[in-house]
Design a protein around this nucleic acid. Structure first.
Lengths: 221, 221
DNA sequence: ATAATATTCAATTGATTACTTGAATTATGA
DNA sequence: TCATAATTCAAGTAATCAATTGAATATTAT
């Protein structure tokens, strides 16, 4: 019989989630899983970790309730437990961005310097898409695009952008998005697009945040 | 020069917040600070921790950006850094409630059993208050009520409830609230009120969540 | 039946964390 | 000036954590 009351026991349980979020590698794993479900070996490669280490982090995330797994043959595929996990990660970033000087500094030196134009909020993009005056480009790798993307978005992975500029309708504004608020892909994309004379902006959110907010998405599976 | 990229550095920073949330005592401290600003000795007493231990936890919370402090004479008063911290704690609870079997079990055995009627959502209470058919009762200690409470709420701390029943308008429904979704005060209050024949319900949120959602509050300072 | 693949488990090591205890610091009151 | 109060710091101890290494397990392909 636990010696503490229900309140303390609940705090112990919620602390498990805090523990799961207390390691930078696990946060990175969660960001990748926000884009699509993955196996251990893929996540290990994406995060540049050993397979054993990745597997242990995944066990911790699963035990904290942040991810689920299901076996397909000899492969185990992991995914986020729900959109509420995306929202938890988003508010974690927001709190960090608001209250941690180191976060503000990192964002300024690596992100704001690259694109000091305000990113477009999700609601505003939804409105503009309806007037068909804008091209939405998903600059994540194709696998992530196929797993899920904004309705109507086209996929031009960043490393193919220069070769595929002709696919963009001339004269239209381009809005690029990627994995999330602090993913560099859309910053780099916007930089390249502007260099080629395009009117380019970034979306404020990545795909997981857009989806978690209930905005329209589709898959290409 | 750090060896990892800006992304990894950002994850390290966000992980600091995860670390701050990875201890049950710190979560309890944050819940109390959600009600009102406090000194170290008060928090130590509320949480049943030593003063030194409480102070160390507060340093960690401050360094993670979750609380701020300011000195008044020889006392240091701590408070939450912003409503975004309340929202972080709320989504932490939601994720735990949705995805952790132990949390569901604890909630069922200690909370749902006491009051299996659905708590009233904040929006619904706001609407009902406008038609003046309901009495909103804050059952937290008076100090917390004075620091901030729902507009129009009266304060009858739980331990004074039986002695002050006459203050409740006869024939009206009573909605009780306290510190947050898993605080027992409003459960106990509703239980006592129903035993005395009142039509009593609980509010879904506590005061901090209501305030963080932008709902109307007032203070009695 | 065996080899290969994918994943997980277990033990070890070094680092980190939580709490305690006692000391140090800072501010106030007598 | 000195005592008290409030808070923080530092060191020590035990427990926990992250990564590595090697072994074990489960599934698939030959």
């Amino acid at each position: 019989m636990p010696k503490s009351g229900p309140k303390q026991q609940l705090f112990e349980q919620f602390a498990r989630i805090g523990k799961a979020l207390s390691n930078a590698n696990r946060l990175e794993i969660l960001e990748f899983l926000g884009q699509r479900e993955c196996g251990v070996d893929e996540l290990a490669a994406l995060c540049r970790l050993s397979v054993a280490n990745t597997s242990q982090h995944l066990q911790q995330l699963r035990q904290a309730g942040l991810v689920t797994s299901d076996k397909r043959g000899q492969r185990v595929l992991y995914r986020l437990s729900g959109d509420d996990v995306v929202q938890l990660l988003l508010i974690l970033r927001r709190v960090g961005s608001s209250h941690l000087a180191e976060v503000k500094q990192l964002i300024h030196h690596y992100f704001t310097i690259k694109d000091d134009l305000e990113a477009i909020p999700a609601r505003e993009l939804l409105d503009r898409v309806k007037t068909a005056q804008v091209t939405v480009v998903d600059v994540r790798p194709a696998k992530e695009y196929r797993a899920g993307h904004l309705c109507g978005a086209i996929n031009i992975p960043l490393n193919e952008l220069e070769a595929r500029l002709a696919e963009l309708p001339p004269g239209q504004q381009v809005v690029a998005y990627c994995r999330g608020p602090h993913c560099m892909l859309s910053y780099d994309a916007v930089e390249k697009l502007r260099r080629e004379g395009y009117d380019a902006r970034r979306l404020e959110d990545g795909y997981p945040e857009w989806k978690a907010a209930g905005m329209p998405v589709e898959t290409a599976l």
